[in-house]
Design a protein around this nucleic acid. Sequence first.
DNA 1: TGTACTTATGAAACAAAATTGCAAATAAAC
DNA 2: GTTTATTTGCAATTTTGTTTCATAAGTACA
Lengths: 155, 155
Amino acid sequence: MALDKFDLEILEILQKNNLTPQRDIGDRIGLSAAAVQRRIKRMRETGVITADVSVVDQSELGHPLTIFVEVELKDEQLKLIDEAKQLFSSIAEVQQCYYVTGDVDFILVLALPTMSDYEKLTRKLFFGNPNVKKFKTFVSMQSVKTTFEIPIIKK
Amino acid sequence: MALDKFDLEILEILQKNNLTPQRDIGDRIGLSAAAVQRRIKRMRETGVITADVSVVDQSELGHPLTIFVEVELKDEQLKLIDEAKQLFSSIAEVQQCYYVTGDVDFILVLALPTMSDYEKLTRKLFFGNPNVKKFKTFVSMQSVKTTFEIPIIKK
DNA sequence: TGTACTTATGAAACAAAATTGCAAATAAAC
DNA sequence: GTTTATTTGCAATTTTGTTTCATAAGTACA
């Protein structure tokens, strides 16, 4: 979908706060609220905007721990890779899952209550998984920046 | 802040779609819209809800590439670590930055237009940085799951 | 157990925001 | 330069969010 200058400016605002009133957005970018509304609607329908969500403090929900895992598979058959994707995706504690190039196959980002919970999950996902060759764990001490914001290229 | 059963149910909904009308939420969990509104307001004020954002398709914004970087510093003085945190955070293409334990100091998640842009950024962040000992790059072939959702523990 | 105090609730009134209809303006196609 | 298709702003409408207020539920304590 072709995005013009106005669309980009709208997205720039919504990526920071999607509760911004359309009237305010209109004022800032020089459009009427109605025009803004129609553009947002279109971007939602066409999949430019993929989701609208509240971000919640993970500690408040009892999942203070962020853990990264690099997973290497034994067998990289398409079928087995798809199985791994499905398995990892199905776990609620897996916030993010990426299929990557290189000597590692997957990178996972987990949110968990305690190390003990990670240990349990580890058994299910890795030790109990015949196709996992090895995995490497990184524990986050601090989330310095956490966003899905994409920079807007202005011309 | 103490969250009760209702708060958790609200958060479960808002994490998936924060545009859900409060009346709908109320109907689903058995509260009036007014009660839902007050609870959401309080959770925003107390920082339980840290942000409300639209998530945008990165390809649509010309940043189809997702890259992970493990960064290892030479000197782990507090001052130099803070400098690194600030530097990484300040880069718009750095979506996520974590300070981690182990043989690596930082893990970065980047969103970029092309490999050539990564190469350029690499010079600025790593090669041109006297305190970076080494860094390791992983290129994502597929974003299998990307969310900040935290599981809700129901009793 | 009873009283004072705090807090949360729903219903209704109110305010603010989003959405739609329509005519005018703009841009694109030919 | 005329036609066609899009997009716009304004105003009306509808939906959603917010506040008020009286009531109910829950606490603390004598």
